[in-house]
Every structure is written in structure tokens, then in C-alpha cells.
């Protein structure tokens, strides 16, 4: 067994020190408590600060635990928070595209629909919130599989059922498709899950660039595609929407 990494041990000791008792300490207090040279202690603190685990009070120069530590403990984004943030953007996407929009997150072995905006015509439609979609064939599922490693594993390990003749079921072909999705930044489903239905989806990222969900436009293949190709303005609209929601969640520009 290899020797433990000393600087990590020291960093852990610093976090414990800041977590116990009174909660703001100066550099010399920390260095002397741990028996370190000030320069060594400062180097470790600066690294921890850069990662967000430690924050330095601007006025006193003292150190305290950072917000990132709290987020580590509950990093999971509440799906209802996601819906609340996405509401105006998905409304606008439905309006500009003339098609229904869905917001999906990974749930067990599939995509859970957490938000659904009706197609803006006066037709009768049923709210699909709470429904599940397959990972390997839908646009939402493919985006999640391409960006979220957990979804990727689920999609690879599951039996990829052929819903239509166009469903991709072969593992190698599936991987190649995910590579293309990652390269382009969006996924499509042209009659791979339902005959006559096509969809385009793009990923939503949170402030740490973690994929937390996907947004899709879904409609009749005749409207979503033109001359056998997906309409580029639809792809652009879906990606704009995903970026807007990501920005609202604190993700930087990308």
C-alpha cells in the first residue's frame, strides 16, 4: 500500500480545524495549530480557496469554511427547482417553435418528464408530467446518456428495445451516436421511438457544468423535419433554450 499523500492529509486537517469550535482563523493560527510553516499552510489554503472549500474574509483576512463544502453534501438539484427556473424559457420555446416542449431528468433506468408545455394550438392535449421515456431512443434520453455518465451506464447495460425499424440498438452504433451528440451539442429522435414523431433535445448544465437535465421539442415528423432534415431553426431554438436555463442555474457561458 502506497504512503498517503501528505498535502491532502494536511488539507483535511485544516478543514477539520475550521469546522470545529470558533470558525474564523488567521493564517498564523492555522499554521501553528498544525505545526506547519506559514508558507506551506498558505499554499494549501490557497488551493482550498480556489476549489471553494475555504473562503477568506476580505476585511480580516481570516479563513472560514466555503460554500462548496455545503453543496458537496447535497449536490442534487431539486427537479422542482429546475422546473421553476425553466418555466419561462420552455414557454417561449413552445411559442416560437409551435411544438410541445418537455423537460426530462434521469430517473432510474429512464427519463422522467418533469415539465411539459403544450403545443400552442387549441387541440386537446394531456399533461405528461410524471411519465417515463426510454434512455436509448428518445432525444431527451440520448442527450442524458451522452452527457451524464450514470445515464450512459444505464443505457449501455439496459436491453435496448427496438421500438421502430429506426431504433439504434447495437452497442457500438449507440456509442458512435453519443460521440456525435457530444460533438454537436444536441440529439435527435426521428421516428426512433414513435412512428411519425420527431424530437430535438439539448443538455442543461448547472453552475458546476454538471448535466442536470435536458430540454426537447417534440412534434410530427412532417413539421419537425423539412426535406428529410431536421429544421435548423428548431435545433437553434432548443439549444438557445437549454443555454438560457443553464444560465439561470448559474452555469457560465459556453
Amino acid at each position: 500500500m502506497a504512503k498517503n499523500i501528505q498535502s491532502l492529509e494536511r488539507a483535511a486537517a485544516m478543514l477539520r480545524l475550521l469546522a470545529g469550535g470558533e470558525r474564523r482563523l488567521g493564517l498564523s493560527d492555522i499554521a501553528s495549530s498544525l505545526g506547519l510553516a506559514k508558507g506551506t499552510a498558505h499554499g494549501i489554503l490557497r488551493t482550498l480557496q480556489h476549489e471553494g472549500f475555504v473562503e477568506q474574509d476580505a476585511a480580516s483576512g481570516r479563513y472560514q469554511l466555503g460554500a462548496e463544502l455545503l453543496r458537496l453534501g447535497n449536490s442534487y438539484l431539486d427537479v422542482h427547482e429546475l422546473r421553476a427556473r425553466a418555466l419561462v424559457w420552455t414557454d417561449d420555446l413552445a411559442r416560437s417553435s409551435g411544438e410541445s416542449t418537455h423537460l426530462g431528468v434521469l430517473h432510474q433506468q429512464g427519463v422522467l418528464i418533469v415539465h411539459h408545455v403544450f403545443r400552442p394550438d387549441d387541440s386537446r392535449q394531456v399533461l405528461e408530467v410524471g411519465a417515463m421515456q426510454p434512455l436509448h431512443s428518445t432525444a431527451l434520453g440520448k442527450v442524458l446518456s451522452a452527457y451524464d455518465p450514470v445515464a450512459h451506464t444505464e443505457a449501455l447495460e439496459a436491453e435496448r428495445q427496438p421500438f421502430t425499424p429506426r431504433t439504434v440498438t447495437d452497442a457500438e452504433e449507440f456509442e458512435a451516436m453519443l460521440d456525435l451528440i457530444r460533438a454537436r451539442g444536441w440529439a435527435a429522435d426521428v421516428e426512433e421511438t414513435w412512428e411519425g414523431v420527431a424530437a430535438v433535445a439539448a443538455p442543461i448544465h448547472d453552475r458546476r457544468r454538471m448535466p442536470v437535465g435536458a430540454v426537447a421539442v417534440t412534434g410530427a415528423v412532417e413539421r419537425v423535419c423539412a426535406d428529410g432534415e431536421l429544421r435548423p431553426e428548431l435545433i437553434a431554438a432548443v439549444r438557445d433554450c437549454a443555454r438560457a436555463v443553464s444560465r439561470d442555474l448559474g452555469a457560465g457561458r459556453f
Binding site: 414557454d91 413552445a94 411559442r95 411539459h116 408545455v117 403544450f118 400552442p120 387549441d122 392535449q125 399533461l127
Partner: peptide, 12 residues
Amino acid sequence: ALRANWRRAAEW
């Protein structure tokens, strides 16, 4: 004309 602008986003 305004009614025609109204769009249903969801219905429970």
C-alpha cells in the same frame, strides 16, 4: 383577436 393570441401551456 386577443383571445386568439391566448395559448394554453398546460391544463390539469
